[in-house]
Design a binder for these strands. Structure first.
Lengths: 212, 212
DNA sequence: CAGCATCCGCTTTGATACTG
DNA sequence: CAGTATCAAAGCGGATGCTG
């Protein structure tokens, strides 16, 4: 467990729980895996983490009630980690931080790891369904290690890793940084074509999402 | 400067900038001091920080564009630190974390430092003016080291350290933890009286703020 | 005194190796 | 697969010293 700030202040109390290095990234990883994650899923989604730290942090987060661990019943299987309701309540904070940090996407440099799944948080935080009465549509985002589906309709936007059931109405593909730049609103979609972002299908959906 | 996560992800990029210990608390301190703060103001508002760390972090935050430092012109005076616009953009994230952490206020224990000023963030994040067309009113919160004024009117709620110009319409006083518990919504105001919270004046303002 | 910088003991982190 | 063990390096907290 980490050292407490010892301050009677909501922010300080929050940081006492999730302020340690890697903790919020673990929460992110569990937010984008609503069905839960195994230890190795987490390790893969957190490139750079030392395995002992991951184990320590998971223990801490369990003790503070943010993460739950489900032991499997049948003979052979592996434990699954999942956010508790208390942990899911971190979503607004994670989104706000991700939006703020998205500002730095175009300028960021160096070796950067990427997982398509990470797009789920900024997509749901920043994109909106501006034509809620139109029929629902599906967008497929192709970049990085796996596709991401965005379901848009009824005024809501949901994203998850995977492929759409039906064929998508719109497909966006390109290099991860450019795609994330577009989602973060720092890279106008018109300019994005110059850095390899391709958009095909029903391009009115682009406006519907506010990516014009 | 801290070690980067090296991940192409808004959250990770945000944490690269403000993820180090004390950084977000420094941002909080500057958020509740909109006129800027001197080095010693910050040290007083951050009980427990080592002075070398405060100096280091202020340098880091300047380099990353979160904090600005204004050198005084006249012969003798001391530098003033202030959030840049980029730094002020952290407010939603700080509020979200403070709200989440507020959950722990009633259960928190041990030696806890407190500064009345810290109330400004949760007050503005959690209280609302539910009767925007009524005339503006002032609330004085008396707890901790100095009073805090809350100005309510026109659908907005603003808080700052200090006393109201005119005499307040409502006065709330009591021990810091109880007062913060009430603001955080975890301690019903009816129950708060048992732990020393006193409310005097125009108590309709309590409902107007949603503290009923 | 305000605003740091330096030093030192301790804790935390990160990389790798190892185990049930 | 899901961690534990080990150890060097970095970071933190506290005290103290320097400079205008």
């Amino acid at each position: 467990m980490s050292r407490s700030y010892g301050q009677l202040c909501g922010l300080a109390l929050a940081l006492d729980v999730i302020g340690d290095r890697w903790n919020l990234l673990i929460v992110r990883e569990l937010l984008v895996r609503p069905d839960g994650a195994r230890y190795t899923d987490l390790r893969d989604g957190l490139p750079g983490v030392a395995t002992n730290l991951l184990a320590d942090r998971l223990r801490d987060l369990q003790h503070s009630g943010v993460v739950g661990r489900e032991e499997p019943k049948p003979p052979v299987a592996t434990p699954v980690f999942r956010l508790t309701e208390y942990g899911r309540a971190l979503r607004p904070a994670v989104e706000a931080l991700a939006v703020w940090g998205g500002e730095r996407v175009p300028g960021s440099s160096g070796e950067q790891d990427f997982r398509s799944r990470w797009l789920v948080v900024p997509i749901e935080a920043l994109l909106a369904d501006h034509h809620p009465d139109d029929p629902a549509v599906r967008v497929e985002v192709r970049t990085g290690d796996e596709p991401v589906v965005v379901e848009v309709g009824g005024g809501e936007v949901h994203a998850r890793a995977g492929r759409p059931q039906d064929r998508p109405d719109l497909v966006i593909s390109g290099p991860p940084k450019a795609v994330l730049g577009v989602i973060s609103g720092k890279l106008p979609i018109a300019v994005a074509a110059d850095v390899g972002v391709e958009v095909s299908g029903d391009t009115t959906v682009v406006n519907r999402l506010g990516l014009g």
